[in-house]
Design a binder for these strands. Sequence first.
DNA 1: TGAATAATGGCCT
DNA 2: AGGCCATTATTCA
Length: 106
Amino acid sequence: MSDIRHRVLTATHITEFQRRVYLELLRVPRGKTVTYGELARRIGCRSAQAVGQALKRNPFAPEVPCHRVIASDGTLGGFHSQRTGEMIEKKRALLKEEMGLPLQKK
DNA sequence: TGAATAATGGCCT
DNA sequence: AGGCCATTATTCA
């Protein structure tokens, strides 16, 4: 079982909203991707930016499947080349093959 | 198809 | 209260 989930549930240095985002993210089944807007709607939010911000500030780093979140275009959306960014970028590539995604490149 | 801009909603300091 | 954001949609060429 993912202690990550437990960590999020015990996280107190984050807002309730943030917790929802992480939980929903962990809730995403493997081989499935969700857009910021989709995830936002799931938690009852209308702003994908808020979700994105939550992931950016993600205190749970790559432990959380943030690589399953993509833009509405089916692209990788945002992501920076920071330390975690590189790792996630790589993870994303593997995840794509894992789920058999044809890598939509507009 | 690609780029730029506008609008939007919520979070952080 | 102000600024920020890993967005989204729309518009123009």
